[in-house]
């Protein structure tokens, strides 16, 4: 660890902050202290850190944070209890489940057709294709259906219709990985892969309405010719999410012998 800024001989902000937090090894801490004793700029930076921290924790002690976290959870709990399955990502509300009775067990099912979806829309240029498989989506907002853009920010009430591209008749399991470390199965067939036909931009039988919780969400479709269980996909997704330190944006491919396509959605 360097204790001086690359630009000058002063300890950088990072080193001063670590000193303030008590994270510097003793030898480095002594060096920083000795430097600050002779340097007005670094001494004033350390004072700023100390005063800032005292003010921050004075105004927002842990009890305030704990209460805020509880309120956030309670707020989310209300919507979850109405229409979301246990463990579902907090901003996605499946509303059309078609024949997927197993997946529907824990849902309150609201049959809301995904109206006016283009019959054979072009696959989004932003979808990621691997081994000929792909995943894209349409979004319905204010009565209009338009091709989805993974780079856009979506909001509560937007309806998402996932669409797949497959070069052959394959089994697919679709899961979502969210920033809370939760992995949820969106499409399967009673714990096994859902049989899908070859085609481009084919709609999945379920659409999803975004709820009011913000965050990034990665949706991964695993295509396989062989039997593919939802449990195996979920386990691999959890490993990938853990490897990415819980950040869906940086999740890599799942370590499964299958072709994969994924989307990263953002919600304000």
């Amino acid at each position: 660890m360097s204790e001086t800024t690359p630009h000058t001989d002063h300890p950088g902000w990072d080193a001063l902050l670590r000193h303030h937090q008590g994270d510097l090894p003793a030898a480095q801490a002594e060096k920083v202290s000795a430097h600050a004793a002779e340097c007005a700029l670094c001494a004033s930076r350390l004072r700023t850190l100390n005063e800032g921290a005292r003010k921050f924790h004075g105004e927002r002690p842990f009890a305030v944070l704990e209460s805020a976290l509880r309120n956030r959870r309670d707020g989310l709990g209300g919507s979850e209890s109405l229409a979301r399955p246990t463990g579902a990502p907090r901003w996605l509300l499946p509303v059309v489940l078609g024949g997927f009775a197993a997946a529907a067990g824990a849902f309150v099912i609201l049959h809301v057709p995904f109206a006016d979806s283009p019959s054979a829309p072009a696959v989004s240029a932003k979808e990621r294709l691997k081994s000929g498989v792909g995943l894209s989506f349409d979004v319905e907002r204010g009565g209009q259906v338009v091709p989805g853009d993974p780079g856009a920010i979506y909001k509560a009430g937007d309806r998402i219709q996932l669409k797949y591209t497959s070069p052959a008749r394959l089994n697919v399991v679709v899961v979502s990985l969210d920033g809370r470390g939760e992995v949820t199965v969106f499409h399967d067939d009673a714990g096994a892969g859902l049989r899908v036909e070859a085609g481009t931009g084919r709609a999945m039988p379920t659409s999803i309405v975004l709820d009011d919780a913000p965050g990034a969400e990665r949706i991964v479709a695993c295509f396989s010719e062989s039997a593919l269980t939802s449990a195996a996909v979920v386990a691999a997704a959890r490993r990938a999410l853990t490897a990415a330190e819980g950040d869906p944006r940086t999740v890599g491919a799942l370590d499964l012998p299958c072709a994969q396509a994924d989307l990263l959605l953002h919600k304000e």
């Binding site: 670590r18 937090q21 994270d23 927002r60 944070l65 805020a68 976290l69 956030r72 959870r73 920033g179 809370r180 470390g181 853990t242 330190e245 819980g246």
Partner: peptide, 24 residues
């Protein structure tokens, strides 16, 4: 800050210590 500590609360049980808490 609330969002960060909400995520930290959810992730602490899986925290493996590959980076320091501070870096995480």
């Amino acid at each position: 800050v609330q969002e960060v500590f909400l995520r930290a609360d959810a992730g602490l049980s899986r925290f493996e210590g590959r980076a320091s808490h501070r870096t995480w």
